[in-house]
């Protein structure tokens, strides 16, 4: 039996390692180059373009959409080019889009989630209704993400008329991780010793002053820990944003808007949706594979960086506290 358990553990580890190494190795071929500056800057800073592949005078040419058009201006002869969507250029708009979606939805989820957790842990009394609310929140955590996507599509995109937009994506993703944030925040708040609350109240602080100055600051590290998992989920889910926020292709960057209010009502490209599009919506070949692995690798790195940032933030908070 010992070996069964041991092998099961190693099997999981082996699978995870294989997937990660596969993405990292194949992705690095796209992301890194063998000449200075050793990083494929184009891939990280340009929007995706269509790739044109053709033979010219015995040489195999691989040109992006814009390069191909320029090339045609100087060359009159007709070439038989194969066009492969999204396989030239880079994925910069997807990186920006994912970052915007993560930041916005985490703000939505933290504001609503912490408020709800404060109410549940500090103000509410233990009534049947509150117990029902807790059960409802736990159940919400089990709802599949595609259902959240459809809900967001129905409520925000159609009923509120926000169309496919950042703000609709923020609220859909925010609602999706809300149960996790509420539950974890409530636990962090409850972990703050009762003596600190009593000590503060006994000095003539109101309950809101007590929460703001003497409970919430000590719960922040715990809340951030749970948010890290939330970030990974928000960044990674495709289903909730495919109807509400993501475009398969968009040339303008999110800051290229005429009015500042338009910023919230524009759709964006996003890394997980881009992976989905390039691996299932277009014919597969060696060129699309490069983009797929490159995008997946960048995606892993981006999620890791965001998680790392929140871990650093948490540790800095935590170092100030101890009881």
């Amino acid at each position: 039996m010992f070996w069964t358990f041991r092998l099961a553990t190693y099997f999981v580890l082996a699978c995870a390692t294989y997937i990660f190494l596969d993405i990292a190795i194949k992705g690095s071929r796209t992301l890194f180059t063998n000449h200075a500056p050793f990083i494929n800057v184009k891939f990280l800073t340009e929007p995706p373009q269509t790739l044109y592949v053709f033979d010219y005078q015995g040489k195999k040419m691989e040109l992006s959409d814009r390069e191909f058009r320029k090339w045609q201006e100087t060359h009159t002869e007709h070439v038989d080019a194969t066009s492969i969507a999204y396989s030239a250029g880079g994925i910069f708009p997807c990186i920006v889009g994912t970052a915007l979606l993560v930041i916005g939805s985490m703000i939505v989820a933290l504001v609503i989630g912490i408020s709800a957790a404060i109410y549940l842990s500090e103000y509410s009394r233990d009534t049947h209704f509150i117990r029902f609310v807790r059960v409802a929140i736990l159940n919400l955590a089990g709802v599949p993400s595609i259902v959240f996507g459809l809900f967001g599509f129905g409520l925000f995109v159609i009923f509120f008329g926000w169309n496919v937009s950042l703000i609709a994506g923020w609220f859909t993703l925010g609602l999706m991780i809300l149960p996790a944030i509420i539950t974890a925040s409530e636990e962090s708040l409850r972990a703050v010793p009762k003596g600190l609350r009593e000590g503060s109240l006994a000095l003539g602080a109101t309950s809101w002053q007590t929460i703001r100055k003497n409970v919430l600051p000590y719960a922040v590290p715990g809340i951030l820990t749970s948010s890290i998992l939330g970030i990974a989920r928000v960044a990674g889910e495709t289903a909730p944003i495919m109807f509400t926020a993501a475009y398969a292709m968009r040339d303008e960057m999110p800051w290229q808007v005429t009015k500042w209010t338009d910023f919230f009502f524009q759709g964006v490209m996003a890394l997980p949706y881009h992976i989905y599009v390039v691996s299932s919506k277009i014919p597969q070949n060696e060129y699309t594979e490069r983009v797929q692995y490159g995008t997946a690798f960048v995606f892993l790195v981006v999620v890791m960086l965001i998680a790392l940032a929140s871990i650093v933030l948490r540790e800095r908070q935590r170092r100030r506290l101890s009881w």
Partner: peptide, 21 residues
């Protein structure tokens, strides 16, 4: 209180707390 419950702040801030609130 029975169990001493200083706030996880500096000594100064502990005393100043009641005045600040």
């Amino acid at each position: 209180f029975q169990k001493s419950n200083p706030f996880p702040k500096s000594i100064y801030e502990n005393i100043a707390y009641g005045l600040r609130v």
